[in-house]
Write a protein that binds this DNA or RNA. Structure first.
Lengths: 142, 142
DNA sequence: CCTCCAAGTGATAATGGAATTCATTAATTT
DNA sequence: AAATTAATGAATTCCATTATCACTTGGAGG
């Protein structure tokens, strides 16, 4: 099943309509897979392609896609949010260069070996790390 | 050496003055150690104490304290930044409850055992995690 | 194919956190 | 004490995001 059909199904299955703006945004995301885009990026690229979509709609659609698990929202150290397609079972994390802000992705298959191997594998000198575990605390588990 | 003296030294050593606003902000931070405060929180508490400090100064001071390693700036999933005192060698991370937003802190002594032990230790059901390593990429290492 | 209407859209205004400006004040140097 | 420099704070600006609300549209049911 094509990627776009798959996403389409998720939408329809959740009782949302497949509208033109949503399809256009989806296309931009697929065309730029692997990049980290802001809402504004997407809005601009659509305008450049001669298929403008209102900024409010872009934000609403990105939020919806996050809820449906189509997208991940990423917060780095700056003010804006970045979005990327959620590749199933390809959970990955980020190396962030403090000097140039380059972002390098890495998988989490070998959590215990990370600290040691990252430097070698990516030539990245780790000086700090931030880990957030998300889930449900003892008060909220059903 | 008292905590406040220690911080004072860091300031003076870096050629900054220990001014009244800076001291007041420091006091608020020490009084609320362990909490995660926003710039606005600090600004409000100072006003309530009858020792108001301009919001701009609060922001500038927090930024300065971060540079000097006195504070850490934390970005959770919402829009604002939170600040907490940096306790030397007590590097820790955060468990964030998706239901109530409670934040539980945990140390990183046993990185490899985390995933397994967290659930037991904190009664926290982990459903996702975000790891960011900060440092210098191959292009930027001197 | 047509009608209807909830769902969706988009221009614009509003919001809110953070950064900046700039005139004023405090501290330090000569 | 004059001059230079650092720091402050009220007000303004910036910028990402959200809310508002009149208008449009997709698609289910006739």
């Amino acid at each position: 099943m094509s990627r776009i059909k798959e996403i389409e199904n998720k939408l329809v299955h959740a009782k949302y309509k497949l509208t033109t703006p949503r399809r256009l945004i989806m296309e931009i995301l697929l065309e730029n897979e692997g990049e980290h885009l802001t809402a504004e990026d997407i809005h601009n690229r659509l305008r450049e392609k001669g298929q403008p979509v209102g900024l409010a709609t872009v934000y609403r659609t990105l939020e919806l896609f996050c809820e449906l698990g189509i997208l991940s929202r990423l917060n780095f150290e700056d003010a804006s949010s970045y979005y990327e397609l959620e590749e199933h079972d390809q959970h990955h994390h980020h190396l962030i260069c403090l000097a140039c802000n380059r972002i390098i992705e890495f998988s989490d298959e070998l959590l215990e070996d990370f600290m040691v191997s990252i430097e070698r594998k990516y030539g990245f000198e780790v000086t700090d790390h931030k880990i957030k575990y998300l889930g449900y605390c003892s008060h909220c588990r059903n």
